[in-house]
Amino acid sequence: MTYPTGPYLAAAPDDGYALEPEPQHGRAMAEAIPTWRPRDLTDVLDGTYRAPEPTIGRRDDGVGLFYPGRVHSVIGESEGGKTWFALLAVCSELAAGHAVVFIDFEDDAPGVVGRLLALGADRTAIRERFAYIRPEEPLGANFNRNEIATALHDLRPTFVPIDGVTEGMALHGMELKDNTDVAKFGRMLLRPIADMGAAVTTLDHVTKDREGRGRYAIGGVHKLNGLNGAQYVLENRTPFGVGVTGKSTVRIAKDRPGQLRKHALSHSSGLHWFADFTLRSHDQTFTEGSLYPPIEQQGPFRPTSLMRKVSDAITGAPAPLSVRGVQDRVTGNKDAVRQALARLVDEGFVSVEAGPRGAQLHKLAKPFTEGASNDD
C-alpha cells in the first residue's frame, strides 16, 4: 500500500508531537490549541456529556474492549497470547467496516497477516483497510513522521495496536526503566494517534517475578500511570501453539473511564476477571479465537492458581513430597497450600503413598491444567 504526500507529525516544544497539515508555499504551521486555556465545561454542567464507552473490539457477548481516542495496554508473559488478543480485535474492526493500522517493533508482515488470515479476516478488507508498519529507524529520521501521519490521515483507523514497546523505546534511544523516557515515548507516538480518535493499544511484557509483578509491565511504572484507557493482564493457563488449544485469563488492571469493570467479576488479586481467552489452533491456516465472558463460580471454590503451583512443586521434586515438603516449596498461606494439595488429591491429579514413620508422600498421577477435572 502506498500513500500520497499529506499531513505529518510535527515536533512540539515539549518533545511531544502533533498532527499538523504539511506546510504549503512557506506558510507557517497552524498554531496549536493552547492546552493551558480553561476548558469549556458546558456539556458537563448541562448534562449532555456522555462518558466514554468501550466500542473497539468485542468479547463474545458483544461487550467492547477498548475506548476510542484513548491509550491502552495489554501485558503478559512471552507467548501468552498478547498479539493474538489484539488481532481478534483487529478482525472485529475489519469485519465492522473499519480500518486498522498495526505498528510492529517485533514481528514481520507475513507473521501478522498470516495470523489474521488464520483467524478468518477477509483478504479484501486487509488489502484496503489494514496498514502494517514495521519501523526500523526512529520516527524523526527521514520522512517517517510524514509517512505514518499520511497513513493515519488516509485510513482514519479506529484501532492502532503497537507491538513491542520495549523494542520501540530502544530504537529511539530511550531507557525502559526511566519514567521520563516512558512519558516521552507516549507523547511522541501514542497520544498523537489517540488524539485522532483511534484506540491505541500497546502490547508489552510483564516482569519475570510472578509473585511481585502485580499490575505492572516491565520497565517504568509510568507505563501504567500514563494510560487513560484500560490495561489488561493476560495470565496464561495453557500454552498457545500450532495444533493445540491455548487459554489465558484476561484481567482488568486499570480502567480509567470505569465502564469495563461492570462487565467483569471481582477477584482476590484486585484485578477483575474480564474474560477467558481461548485460541484453538487446527493448523497453520485455521485458528478459532474466543473471548468468553466470566462465569460465577458454581460449587466449592477451586484454587486453580495455587493448585498449579503445588502441582509444579511436586513435578519438580526429586522424590515424592510430604505435606510439609509441599508447603516448604510453595509460597503462600500454609493452610491454603494444604487445601490446594487436598483438592489435587480429591480430583485424582496427585496420588498418596505411605512413607517412613507414617508420613504421607505425594506424587503426580497426571498433569494438571486449570480446565481439567477428575472426569477427564
Rank of each mutant, 00 (worst) to 15 (best):
H98G: 11
L190N: 04
T249L: 12
T249G: 06
M188F: 00
G81R: 11
P161D: 04
V310T: 08
G114Q: 14
F66L: 04
A131G: 05
T207I: 14
H25F: 14
P367V: 08
G355P: 07
R338F: 02
G140T: 03
G214N: 10
M307K: 04
G325S: 03
L176F: 06
S373I: 05
A11H: 00
A10G: 14
V242D: 06
L227C: 11
T201E: 08
S373G: 15
G114M: 15
V345M: 04
A121M: 06
F66A: 04
P300G: 03
Y216D: 09
F277M: 13
N146D: 10
P257A: 06
V63R: 12
A183T: 06
Y216P: 02
V337T: 13
G114N: 11
R156T: 03
L341P: 07
V352I: 09
Q327H: 01
Y216S: 08
A86C: 09
P21N: 13
E370K: 14
T238Q: 08
E347Y: 14
A183P: 04
T315K: 15
H263S: 14
R302Q: 05
Y216W: 11
I193Q: 10
L9I: 10
A11P: 05
G173S: 03
M1R: 08
A131T: 10
F66V: 03
A340I: 02
G47C: 13
G168P: 00
R58L: 10
D335W: 05
V350F: 01
V350M: 03
D40S: 04
V160K: 05
A183R: 07
P21V: 13
R261C: 09
V63A: 14
V352W: 06
G371A: 05
R302E: 09
L344N: 01
K177G: 07
A32S: 15
L265G: 06
L344K: 02
A89R: 00
R261Y: 00
H267A: 11
E347S: 07
R115I: 11
Y132A: 07
L344P: 01
S305Q: 12
H263F: 15
S290N: 13
R357T: 10
P192Q: 11
R210I: 11
S311E: 01
R115Q: 15
D328T: 10
D46E: 06
H98Y: 00
F143T: 13
F274M: 09
V74F: 13
R127D: 15
D163P: 05
D163K: 05
T369K: 12
R145H: 05
E370W: 13
F85S: 11
A109T: 12
G219I: 07
K223M: 05
L94T: 01
E167H: 03
T285A: 12
L361A: 01
M188V: 00
I218R: 14
A336Y: 01
R129F: 01
R237S: 01
Y17N: 08
T245N: 04
N146I: 03
V71A: 14
A121H: 02
Y132P: 06
R338S: 13
P13S: 06
E22S: 13
S305G: 07
V337C: 03
E128H: 15
F102C: 12
F105G: 00
T48L: 06
G289D: 07
I314G: 13
L260D: 03
G219S: 08
G62K: 10
T315Q: 09
R37P: 09
K82R: 15
G219T: 10
G186V: 02
G69S: 01
N374H: 15
